[in-house]
Computed example of a mutant assay.
Amino acid sequence: MIVSADAVALLGRAGLDLLTLLILVGWLYRGQQSVRSMPLAFASLNVGIFAAVTAFTSTPGVLTAGLGFGLFAILQMIRLRSTAFTVKDVAFTFLVLITGLINALPDLDWQLVVALDAAMILAVAVTDTGRDAKITRVMRLTLDKAYSDPVEVQAMLQERLGLAIESVVIKEIDFVRDTTDLRLSYFIDPAWSQPTSEEMFDDSEGIFRA
Rank of each mutant, 00 (worst) to 15 (best):
G100S: 08
A51C: 15
A133T: 09
T127V: 15
L97T: 02
R209K: 10
G100N: 06
I188E: 14
L40G: 03
Q154W: 02
Q32I: 14
A7C: 05
D6H: 11
S197C: 02
P60L: 07
V53I: 15
L95C: 11
S34G: 02
L105Y: 04
V153Q: 06
V151M: 07
V53Q: 02
I165Q: 05
A51I: 14
K134W: 07
T93W: 01
E198S: 05
L101V: 12
S58Y: 01
G100H: 02
F208H: 13
R30E: 09
I170S: 10
L19Y: 03
S34W: 03
N103E: 09
G26S: 01
I135R: 11
F69R: 04
L105D: 03
D117A: 10
A65G: 14
A5N: 13
R183T: 15
G12H: 08
L182Q: 02
V8D: 09
R209V: 13
L80C: 08
L11P: 01
L21M: 10
T99M: 03
L45V: 03
V35E: 11
S167L: 05
I121E: 06
I102W: 00
Q194I: 11
V53E: 05
A65R: 08
W192N: 13
D174K: 08
R81C: 05
Y29E: 06
A91P: 03
F208I: 15
I78W: 00
G100D: 05
E159R: 13
Y29T: 10
L143W: 02
V53G: 00
D144R: 07
T64N: 13
L45S: 08
D17N: 15
L184S: 07
D174T: 12
V62K: 06
G130V: 10
A123Y: 06
E198R: 06
K134H: 12
A41V: 15
P190N: 02
A118D: 08
V169W: 03
Y186V: 04
L22C: 14
D203K: 13
D144H: 05
N103P: 00
I207G: 00
F85V: 09
E159I: 07
Q194Y: 04
V114C: 08
D89M: 03
L122Y: 04
V124F: 10
L16M: 13
T59G: 09
M139W: 06
D109Y: 09
F42R: 05
N46W: 03
G61H: 05
V153C: 06
Y29F: 11
V35A: 11
G100E: 02
E172R: 14
Q33N: 06
V169G: 00
L157I: 09
A191E: 12
L101S: 07
Y29I: 12
F208A: 08
S58L: 05
T86A: 11
R13F: 08
V176A: 11
I207Q: 06
V113I: 15
F175A: 14
V169K: 09
I188M: 06
G68A: 12
L97K: 00
E198Q: 11
V47E: 02
A55G: 15
W192T: 12
S185R: 14
I173E: 14
L161Q: 07
L112C: 06
A52R: 01
V153R: 04
V3K: 05
V35F: 06
F85C: 06
I135C: 00
